[in-house]
């Protein structure tokens, strides 16, 4: 168990029933709630890692959540380097994880 969206029926702030939003993440359809960030939709569907780093290939995901750290970069509808925590998910968004390997050594 990891990040999860509090079901609206359990929420003490008594929200109204939310509409859903559907996006694709690395080819798989995932569903979130209308108005969520792309980062929030991905986190609630399970994955914590959004990209692999260039030097060591390590997994990275949301860290600061407010657009400062740039660790949650993803490709959205063909645009690279979009901060997933800052972009609102729109129905049909195609989101792809990024990995920019360092250029190979010159032979």
């Amino acid at each position: 168990m990891t990040a999860r969206l509090l079901p609206f029926s359990d929420d003490p702030i008594r929200p109204s029933s939310p509409a859903s939003v559907s996006i694709q993440f690395d080819g798989a359809p995932i569903e979130g709630v209308s108005g969520q960030s792309i980062a929030g939709v991905i986190l609630a569907s399970g994955p914590l890692g959004f990209r692999r780093t260039s030097v060591s290939g390590k997994s990275r995901g949301v860290f600061c959540g407010i657009g400062v750290c740039f660790d949650c970069l993803v490709e959205v509808n063909g645009d690279r380097d979009v901060r997933a925590c800052q972009r609102r998910a729109v129905d049909g968004d195609v989101v792809v994880t990024q990995h920019d390997a360092l250029p190979g050594s010159i032979a």
């Binding site: 990040a3 999860r4 969206l5 702030i13 929030g40 986190l43 925590c85």
Partner: peptide
Amino acid sequence: ALAKGERLAVG
């Protein structure tokens, strides 16, 4: 931000 803006618990 995720709790107040989305009602998402990070863990």
